Simulated scan of single mutants.
Amino acid sequence: MDERGVVVTPENEVSGGEFVSQEKRVARGGSVGFSPVALRRHLQRAGYTVEEVADQIGLSRQAVSAWLAGRTTPSPQSLSRVAQLLEVTTADLTPGIPLESMTLQDLRTRAGMSQTAVAQELGVLQSYLSDVERGRRELNTDIAAALARLYQVPLDEILDAWEQAVTLRKERLAARRKRKR
């Protein structure tokens, strides 16, 4: 456990004692919960070098090296390609978020899909999907069912993930109001 009371495990450790936790979100386009340690472990198990992985998924060696160093995280699409190459699931490479803390964005990332691709698949605007993922809009039951099929998870996981996003949004707003006082 670190000084903040967060349990640091080999799966969520980045390097030098840093880690990915559910509190640490990544920049737009990155994969929340991504673990460089998990990627390194699976690379070694499969016998791939950084160069071989980069070549196989169509990215630069520097991009893959940056993931392993914890400087950047792969996009959901890149994460999916790496997982397929290594014959693991995207969940194996993103162990940093417990199931009960997952948001719709996390489920989308684990499905290896971009927000644009999901919006197109659902026939909705990307801005609408973004608002739903952030808990800013109600989750329509038809959209929830479609997301469950698309992400290959039970409907209750979709509903729980949306509720988590709503809760996180409310907590952020309350913290912001408190700081302004």
Rank of each mutant, 00 (worst) to 15 (best):
Y151K: 11
T116C: 02
R134G: 14
E121R: 11
R134W: 00
T94I: 10
K24D: 06
D106W: 01
A145E: 13
Q152L: 08
V82H: 01
T116E: 13
V53Q: 04
L173I: 12
V64I: 15
A83P: 04
A117L: 07
V82A: 09
A38Y: 02
T73K: 04
L86F: 04
V6G: 00
R45D: 05
N12A: 05
A119Y: 07
G47D: 00
L159C: 06
G70M: 13
T9N: 11
G47S: 02
E163S: 10
I143P: 04
M113A: 13
V37G: 01
S35M: 08
S35G: 10
R177M: 07
I97R: 04
V124D: 08
Q44K: 14
L159Q: 14
R137T: 02
V6M: 06
Q62I: 11
L86C: 03
A117W: 03
N140F: 12
S65E: 13
V53W: 03
A69S: 14
N140Y: 11
M1W: 09
P95Y: 07
V166Q: 12
Q56R: 15
V50A: 10
V132C: 02
R41N: 10
G16E: 07
S101G: 06
S127M: 11
R169A: 08
Q44V: 14
A145H: 01
S65R: 15
R4E: 10
Q105C: 01
E163L: 09
E52G: 12
Y151H: 11
L79F: 00
T103M: 13
E157G: 01
R71V: 15
A63Q: 15
T94N: 10
A111D: 08
K24L: 11
S35F: 05
A54M: 11
A119H: 09
P95E: 07
L129H: 08
I143G: 04
E13N: 06
V53F: 03
A91L: 07
Y48Q: 07
D55Y: 10
L107F: 01
A46Q: 12
T109L: 05
G29I: 02
D131N: 15
L79D: 01
N12Y: 07
F19Q: 05
W162N: 14
A175W: 02
Q22F: 11
A174G: 00
E3C: 07
T49N: 07
E3W: 05
K24M: 08
T9G: 10
